[in-house]
Design a binder for these strands. Structure first.
Lengths: 160, 160
DNA sequence: ACAAGTCAGTTGGAAAATCCAACTGACTCG
DNA sequence: CGAGTCAGTTGGATTTTCCAACTGACTTGT
């Protein structure tokens, strides 16, 4: 064993789940996006509501901005002040937050009181995930591998 | 102002998104669950496919087990060896992984080739999230706050 | 006018989490 | 018997995070 350049010692899967977690999986990132989804856009409030320390939060917001998930919007010159807003990409993180909230409210019940979420229709969170193509529900196990994809410059929109 | 016990200096939101991230938001946790969703159940393979270091992975699997998301199943005595399997709770993480994969394949496209995913019908991942109650689609912004919930002992199932 | 407050950060140092490669122990296989 | 498999464990380096205090440019209250 211990061959110098052994390619059979396979590298970690490069997949879109891993790529998504590169951006959204860092600590505080999803909570910051939650805040913006709920209409909170200012640094102090985001820091307070998430519990992230200010220095870390600064870094996260910069990363999310550089990855096109949020944008920094100046709302005051003269003390230069900025708000953080979701881009289209950031707004589309919502299904992840919703799935997470639904899973958590199903399986993470304990004694501590927590804010729950609802659909805007007023009903408790009970989302159903359907395949847009065949209309069937995504059941556990219905996720399978597709082909390798590498489409640089084929972004769906360059609006941000 | 600056009243001694000022409740307006609010604590971080205690919500189900935050609670879910407590369990699923730690590094490598979702990637380990991805592996099990794809049928990989053994320690070495999970370590290889995720890229997690073995000591950290050990810790993650223990946490996930203690939170009821996975279970450790002995498949050999005499060298005591265990496999990791999703519980019902763990299997239901699938919508989160699917939403993440779909978001990522939409917005994280770059030059590096990545494995994509499909629905078992063979179509590319294009999930639609519907409210089970009203049937309407969850659009960005349709997530709103519900009441505070604290339902200890009201678990939907005690099968694991 | 002057003190206090707001706001979006930055700073420095401590604490915690992660990384890494090597090692262990109980086997199986050729 | 030696090599390989497998599920970890160990020790030490590295990275990330935490925390509280501080800054600078204002605004607001008295």
């Amino acid at each position: 064993m211990n061959r110098p350049t052994d390619t059979s010692v396979s590298a970690p899967r490069a997949c879109f789940i891993a790529a998504g977690l590169d951006v959204l999986g860092e600590r505080w990132a999803l909570l910051a996006l939650r805040e913006m989804s709920l209409g909170v856009h200012r640094f102090d409030q985001i820091a307070r509501n998430t519990g992230a320390s200010r220095d870390i939060l600064t870094g996260r917001l910069r990363t999310l901005e550089s990855r096109g998930v949020i944008e920094r919007v100046q709302y005051s010159e003269r003390p230069a002040r900025y708000e953080y807003h979701l881009t289209t990409s950031g707004a589309e993180v919502a299904p992840i937050l919703i799935s997470l909230a639904a899973w958590s409210s199903m399986w993470m019940r304990d004694e501590t009181p927590r804010a729950s979420y609802q659909h805007s229709c007023g009903a408790d969170l009970k989302p159903v995930l359907l395949c847009a193509e065949c209309g069937e529900e995504f059941t556990p196990g219905s996720l399978i591998f597709g082909p390798l994809v590498s489409t640089a410059g084929t972004d769906p929109a360059s609006d941000q």
